[in-house]
Design a protein around this nucleic acid. Structure first.
Length: 552
RNA sequence: UGCCUGAUGGUGUAACGGUAGCACAACUGUUUUUGGUGCAGUUUGUCUAGGUUCGAAUCCUGGUCAGGCAACCA
């Protein structure tokens, strides 16, 4: 009956909470750790968190989860903010877990005072051993029975820098036999004499995720704290801390993270690709990072559309890369300026064309009636695609071949009269006659052809460089394939065309324009492109049913 | 041998005890001055065994399978 999309399970929860009067309005948060660049998986979480707030009339905080100074940096903070803005999302408050370090410390003291936390002198190995295994309960140690007073003094001494890294930790005193490993006296604080990108050297003890995240949510009055499935076992601890501290009860909900075919999504793996030179950087157009996708020519709209379409649920999912490609094609088809570029040229000579040259006009976008036209120069010698000519055409081939006719886009119908070959047997030049009365827009020739080719006037052509990208991996699931995922990197993921011929309009087009190079794909100017040397990245190919036909 | 999640076409995602739908993919046909776009259509699914019910993808019980949990990471 209704056209409305059904609610996902989190929206369901929120609408119930709101209907029950549990909250007047909702507050969500997007909590990245500033230790890497945002990728398409983050985009799913971003779209969810901001989308929820938008849908239910709430707001979203951006919070940097900067509790581990070892790997974090301001560089990442800046890139994350830039990516978020580019995607089109606005946070109401910019927060940092590090802003709460004093408060968090006070919380820890409260726990100690309640006899719910203790300082442990054990090594990491000892602690791990004493935790037991999922099927074997853990055992305590003598430190667990330290007095509140002693714990208070020791924790203060930890803060004061009286101990070295790893000498002592603060642990919650919960249940060493809990079936949930995360409840077996989890670590709350550890000593790290490391410079923090925001708090500098003020602190030498830093809270663990489990002691920082829930409390940060609570401090900010986050109503719905949404994270991915791997945090399910942490939820008991999240609730425990909030309950023991008696603070605002934020609630955690978990959804399944994004997986996509032919790529990897973990920061660790992406970092390896960068460091080991499989790609040229975090913003390499083959990377699933927001910065890489932006450079490749993806639009923010298409990424948001993708995030809407993949849905939110708790089951593991593996999204087809083709859905992402569909989303970007759909958007680009509507907005991209059409241009002609010949990527693998052979010469076409119009034998009966006696004029010097003429200016034709071609529509900028057939999808947009108000898109206007651009002038395209035509002359006796043109460049066409090498694969648009076949010496011995097959039956379903409706391009150029001896005796065959085609239309040159926005120009004339031509008929092939012959061709030249070099000593190696390669076709070098194709000869054709044109029909003057078949001129585009005023065709009175009555000739009907099946194929239309793109072309560029040879003497007006401008050189352009093209980066044609293909999937980064040659298996669907590189993360779970046997052996090192990097051995599945597609060696042909980048094909550079150093010399292609483009129509002169490209010289005057705006740098940020989205292009469709007719019959080739969607392209976007690379950040290193200049008027002296135009470089375009292929965002995605056009759908190519002819290529499919040929494979049969 | 523990605990926690989950299981609907090839891939995602709906159906809230009452006609298994939508999107992508694939495949037809049609239109087309892009083998693009558009339009029309086709194929393919409820993990399993019982139970409750007039009626089960949905509720109950057992099983199977998949993923997660034992970082001084987040």
């Amino acid at each position: 009956m209704s056209d409305e999309k059904s609610l996902n399970f989190i929206e369901e929860i929120i609408s119930q909470d709101l209907a029950a009067g549990k909250y007047k309005s909702i507050l969500t948060r997007f909590p990245p750790e500033p230790n890497g660049y945002l990728h398409i998986g983050h985009a799913k979480s971003i779209s969810l968190n901001f989308g929820l707030a938008e849908k239910f009339g709430g707001a979203t905080n951006l919070r940097f989860d900067d509790t581990n100074p070892v790997t974090e940096d301001t560089e990442y903070v800046e890139s994350i903010k830039a990516d978020l803005k580019w995607l089109g999302f606005n946070w109401i408050k910019e927060c940092y877990a590090s802003d709460y370090f004093d408060q968090l410390y006070a919380f820890a003291v409260q726990l100690i005072e309640k006899g719910l936390a203790y300082v442990d002198d054990s090594t990491a190995e000892e602690i791990a051993q004493q935790k037991g295994t999922p099927t074997v309960p853990g055992t305590g140690n003598a430190y667990r029975n330290r007095s509140i007073q002693e714990n208070l003094e020791l924790f203060a001494a930890m803060k004061a820098g009286q101990f070295g890294d790893g000498e002592k930790v603060l642990r919650a005193k919960i249940d060493l036999a809990s079936p949930n490993m995360h409840m077996r006296d989890p670590l709350l604080y550890r000593i790290k004499k490391v410079h923090h990108h925001r708090t500098g050297d003020k602190w030498c003890i830093y809270p663990m995720y489990d002691f920082a995240h829930g409390q940060s949510d609570s401090i900010e009055n986050i109503t719905h704290s949404i994270c991915t499935l791997e945090f399910i076992p942490h939820r008991a601890l999240y609730d425990w801390c909030i309950e023991q501290l008696g603070i605002f009860p934020s609630k955690q909900y978990e959804f399944a993270r994004l997986n996509m075919t032919y790529t990897v999504m973990s920061k660790r793996k992406l970092l390896q690709l960068v460091q080991e030179g499989h790609v040229q950087g975090w913003d390499d157009p083959r990377m699933p990072t927001i910065s890489g996708m932006r450079r490749r020519g993806y639009t923010a709209e298409s990424i948001r559309d993708f995030c809407d379409r993949i849905g939110i649920a708790k089951r593991e999912n593996y999204i087809d890369l083709s859905l992402l490609e569909f989303c970007v094609r759909e958007h680009l088809n509507k907005i991209a300026q059409r241009r002609m570029v010949v990527t693998d040229p052979i010469k076409l000579v119009i034998t009966n064309y006696d004029q010097d040259e003429e200016l034709l006009h071609s529509e900028n976008n057939p999808e947009d009636p108000n898109g206007g036209t651009r002038p395209v120069p035509f002359s006796k010698e043109l460049w066409i695609q090498k694969d648009d000519f076949m010496e011995e055409p097959t039956k379903k081939y409706f391009r150029l071949g001896p005796g065959l006719s085609v239309r040159l886009k926005s120009a004339y119908i031509i008929e092939c009269e012959g061709f030249d070959k070099d000593d190696a047997g390669n076709v070098t030049t194709v000869y054709a006659k044109y029909f003057p009365e078949s001129k585009s827009g005023s065709d009175t020739s009555g000739i009907h052809v099946k194929g239309t080719l793109h072309w560029v006037s040879a003497k007006h052509a401008i050189p352009v460089e093209l980066n044609e990208y293909d999937r980064l991996f040659n298996v669907e699931d590189p993360s779970n394939a046997e052996g090192d995922f990097k051995s599945y990197v597609n060696p042909h993921s980048l094909h550079s065309v150093t010399l292609a011929w483009g129509e002169p309009a490209l010289l005057t087009d705006a740098l940020e324009s989205r292009f469709q190079f007719l019959r080739k794909g969607y392209f976007y100017q690379d950040i290193n492109s200049s008027k002296d040397k135009l470089v375009f990245n292929r965002t995605v190919t056009l759908k190519d049913t002819w290529a499919k036909e040929q494979k049969k």
